[in-house]
Amino acid sequence: MGVIVTSEQVQRPRTAAQRRNPYGGTTSAVVARMPGPTRNFLVEVGGMLALLGRVLVVTAKHPAEILRPTLDYSYVTLRRCWFPVTVALGGFIVFLSVAALVFFDQLGAVGIYPPVIMRVCIESFTVWAVALVLAGIVGASLTSELGARRVRDELDALYVIGVDPVRELVAPRVLTAIALTTLMSFPAVALSLLTTQLAGAYYASESSAEFYHYVFDNLAPMEMFLAALNCLIAGVIIGTVCAYKGMNAGGGSEGLGKAVNQAVVVSFVALWMTQTLYTGITQGIFDLGRFR
């Protein structure tokens, strides 16, 4: 009968495994001693940063190979999501312009309405709404798609075939999230201007010429740049969080649902916090509120 032979190889000190010990390094040893929730948080953040790093490295190494699937996936995503994104974002923007108008109407100061609402939109609220809507719609669908592949073992199958899933699947998706969030900010800002103007025209009989005169008088290139940068950051957060959650979706019947749920909640919290920080920092550095 068979008892496994213990050869000398088997008994030698298993240094390789010790070197691979995930809690071997100093940082890891510190993390390992943290209380449970803190440790989980750090491990998650670390995993997300590592994933983002790998996406960037892979993209830098094989830009041409990744461009094509990125474009394909962007197209697919746009085709699937344009309608809900338009409704969710458009609804919010229409609502916001009417609310702002009501406020200035109350103060009897409809005159300062265009530049102020334009700034509020560009500097924060429109961008924020874009980020949240894309996290909730594009991000969630990204997580559920990647997570479905994880649950069906497709990611493992890619590994076994010798194809890096980060390069094949994750990088194009993260880049798509970044690109869509950044690009979506421009039509969204344009739409906010349009609805603000229409609201002004309908509810306060403000002339469109005066409106746009005020707006473009007060719009600095720096504002557009900062808005785009803001969206870029939001896109990186959405792409990374949602891809990470999808890649690490648990098994079982609720694993994938949980992953999508967490992806949305985590990206909401992260976006919300970075948004406040970003506004605080940029407003502190650049004197954006100045009227011209």
């Binding site: 479905a148 592949r149 069906r152 073992d153």
Partner: peptide, 10 residues
């Protein structure tokens, strides 16, 4: 590798 449930790309 043949996976337990095929793991074909959907």
């Amino acid at each position: 590798l043949l996976f337990q449930d095929g793991a074909l790309f959907g």
